[in-house]
Nucleic acid binder design. Structure first.
Length: 486
DNA sequence: TTTTGAGTTGTTCGA
DNA sequence: GTCGAACAACTCAAA
């Protein structure tokens, strides 16, 4: 029996990144199956060129997620070593120092992440240490889903059809309940050393009202949402920012606090038990597959964060007006649904998906600001900022990505607001200066009669901005710019 | 190889 | 107010 082996035997190193969980964790399971004590390592990489430094919002999440993970790990007899620096040096050096015979980790798929992992693997092999990476983040590896001719999918629907037809997603692995650490531990940082939490000002102070980082919080949210009334009308309510129509699991999924494989099977089981409508469950699973689709694109299209998938877009003429970008970031565009979304992002670290599309379309097509500016802002402010999802979605809304919207599809921020926030509740919550406006005018305050504005305490241009651009004019200009690169 | 069918998330115009 | 057509033609995937 492996656990009877003497503790002096070579330990195993488990290098954790975006897999901070004990349920269905293939890398953790494999490390445990080595039958030796396991040392867990997390490396904060702030120096590798090309590696995107963690955004501000995600630093807050990581602090809490690691705190909770560490506590859960210690309950299981385990130990977490925190180190800061370049993993290509730290991982092999630490593995050698503790005399590890093997190192396990969960794969990541953006080009620079793959490069880092390759370098770590080579350095370990050069030292005679076994290195194994695992799929713990996706339903399928990016190379497992191919077209009939062996190519990669650039259109979502056939990709989704193939996954539906396969029905070979692996069952979840059992939860790890014990993960004994070696008796002596190497030097390590403390979380406090890393200064991940914002101070002066503490702009994240309200985050904890909305979020519970960590595996426990992820599971609680998933279970509660699955039972909720709004979830069971997912197909229609997922588009309503004023309702609890979406699962809000994205930050948990990003940090690997919950497994996408578990979500898939849980949903299937809920449908089979008649606890969840089959059609809505299918739409939810197709959203999980959108995440897969973005990850396989990132893997097969290195440089996607910078380069439009459709080459002709390289010549697009942007305005990149700094004042417009700033107004968008601050939620002061004069379009209530846009401003509500941008303020939700700032206040809660998250934005509803429908509203992400509206603000994205507005930035790119109404303000003619380069989608990469939007990508950067989201990277810094979103708790769920993910290289694959964030990049693929910005390219999609800009019209230059895979399966992108046709150029003439330009969202009208007013009608989108009326359609998806029909009573204006979402706007009232995040744009309080408009909260007294009747719903007829809540999405277009500039059309309200003076008396109505006065009664609602709104002074356009003072308490709330006039629209910074006229949508009808901006739309025509965007179409002309697209015409120029055709 | 060539052909055929189809493509997340929309808006506007005019009958 | 509602509805269908036009937007403009391109790329992808499969037969």
């Amino acid at each position: 029996m492996p656990y009877l082996l003497p503790m002096t035997d070579a330990p195993t190193l488990l290098w954790l990144r975006q897999d901070l969980r004990f349920d269905d964790n293939p890398a953790m399971r494999a490390a445990l199956d080595e039958g030796q004590p396991v040392l867990c390592l997390y490396v904060l990489d702030e120096e590798t060129p090309g590696e995107w430094a963690l955004g501000g919002a995600q630093r807050w999440w990581l602090h809490h997620s690691l705190t909770n993970f560490q506590a859960d790990l210690e309950k299981r007899g385990g130990a977490l070593i925190l180190r800061r620096g370049d993993p290509r040096q730290i991982v092999p050096a630490l593995a050698q120092k503790i005399g590890a015979s093997s190192v396990h980790w969960t794969r990541r798929y953006a080009a620079w992440q793959v490069d880092t992992d390759k370098a770590v693997k080579e350095a370990l092999k050069a030292r005679g240490i076994n290195a194994e990476s695992h799929n713990g983040g996706l339903l399928y590896e990016p190379w497992e889903i191919a077209t009939k001719t062996g190519g990669t999918y650039r259109v979502y629907t056939p990709y989704w059809k193939q996954i539906q037809a396969r029905e070979d997603i692996r069952p979840p692995l059992p939860r790890v309940n014990k993960l004994p650490a070696p008796s002596s531990l190497p030097d390590r940082d403390t979380l406090e050393d890393w200064n991940l939490l914002p101070t002066r000002p503490n702009w994240a102070k309200s985050f904890s009202e909305d979020w519970a980082p960590g595996e426990k919080g992820a599971k609680a949210r998933w279970r509660a949402w699955l039972k909720s009334k709004d979830a069971k009308a997912y197909d229609s309510l997922r588009n309503r920012p004023d309702r609890e129509g979406t699962s809000r699991l994205s930050p948990h999924l990003h940090f690997g606090e919950i497994s996408v494989v578990s979500l898939w099977h849980d949903m299937q089981a809920a449908v089979a038990a008649h606890d969840f409508p089959a059609d809505d469950g299918k739409v939810f699973r197709s959203e999980l597959v959108w995440r897969e689709f973005s990850h396989q694109l990132t893997f097969h299209q290195p440089g996607m964060e910078e380069t439009p998938l459709m080459e002709k877009f390289s010549g697009f003429r942007w305005d990149n007006d700094k004042a417009h970008l700033r107004a968008w970031q601050q939620g002061l565009t004069g379009y209530p649904i846009v401003d509500a979304g941008m303020r939700q992002l700032w206040q809660t670290g998250w934005m509803h998906n429908r509203v992400r599309m509206i603000v994205g379309s507005f930035l790119v097509k109404d303000l003619l600001v380069d989608w990469r500016e939007g990508l950067k802002w989201f990277w810094d402010t979103l708790l769920d900022a993910d290289p694959a999802n964030n990049t693929a979605s910005w390219q999609w809304i800009a019209g230059c990505g895979a399966d992108a919207a046709p150029f003439f599809r330009i969202f009208n921020p007013t009608t989108q607001g009326q359609k998806f926030d029909p009573d204006g509740d979402y706007v009232r919550r995040f744009v309080p200066e408009l909260s007294a406006l009747p719903k007829k005018y809540i999405h277009a305050p500039e059309t309200a009669p003076p008396l109505i504005l006065k009664e609602a305490g709104v002074k356009l241009g003072e308490t709330y901005p006039l629209p910074i651009v006229d949508h009808a004019i901006a739309r025509k200009e965007a179409l002309a710019r697209y015409e120029a690169i055709k």
